[in-house]
């Protein structure tokens, strides 16, 4: 990938996102974007290399979306983009231009927890809570595709998300619990 001015971007090891550009790049390289986050429209004026996760956390100020690796492995940064789970550290903010983003803060409605949040609480699906927002968003994405998943399907469906605390069993139980509630 080559950007304006023949500058080679420095990408991370997985090659999916840009870590830093040669600083001689022109300062005026900024892009205006507009996107909806949890139902509110936001405008931002950003560098093209700016990651969606940084936009959400540092510009919009919604810090429930966490960063655990910035290399699209751990899943802590998972949000829904146009209804589909994506790792927001692997999406440039410009790629989300015009999109609809749902973060963990957007799940509860009118003070009522989302069934997936309820389920994680009920089943002790979290300990330190750092992977939890990403895990819950990924699980919501999973149930959209597979409303009544088997244990096997849940475990495979969450393979993009790492939890170091729980050993996953209570997370799997929580997703099953939420699925039962949501189809009922």
């Amino acid at each position: 990938m080559r950007l304006a001015g023949g500058v080679l971007p420095k990408v991370c090891m997985c090659g999916t996102h840009i870590l830093s550009l040669h600083p001689q790049r022109k300062e005026e390289q900024r892009v205006k974007i507009s996107l909806s986050i949890n139902g509110t429209q936001h405008e931002a004026d950003i560098e093209p290399r700016f990651l969606l996760v940084h936009l959400i956390r540092d510009v919009i100020g919604l810090t429930g979306t966490h960063i655990g690796c910035e290399t699209s492995i751990c899943g802590a940064c998972t949000v829904l983009l146009d209804g589909k789970p994506v790792k927001s550290c692997a999406v440039l903010a410009v790629q989300a231009n015009g999109g609809q983003v749902t973060t963990i803060e957007g799940l509860a409605k009118d003070g009522q927890l989302h069934p997936m949040q309820e389920a994680f609480w009920e089943c002790h699906g979290l300990q330190c809570g750092y992977c939890t927002p990403g895990m819950i968003m990924a699980a919501c994405g999973l149930l959209k595709e597979t409303p009544n998943p088997s244990e096997e399907e849940i475990r495979h469906g969450l393979e993009g998300n790492i939890c170091r605390c729980t050993g996953y069993q209570h997370i799997v139980d929580a997703v099953k619990y939420a699925a039962d509630k949501m189809v009922a």
Partner: peptide, 15 residues
């Protein structure tokens, strides 16, 4: 059920 959880499952705790 843990009293820590409501803030953590809503992404409103502070790391």
């Amino acid at each position: 059920k843990r009293t820590e959880d409501p803030r953590l499952i809503q992404g409103i705790g502070h790391y």
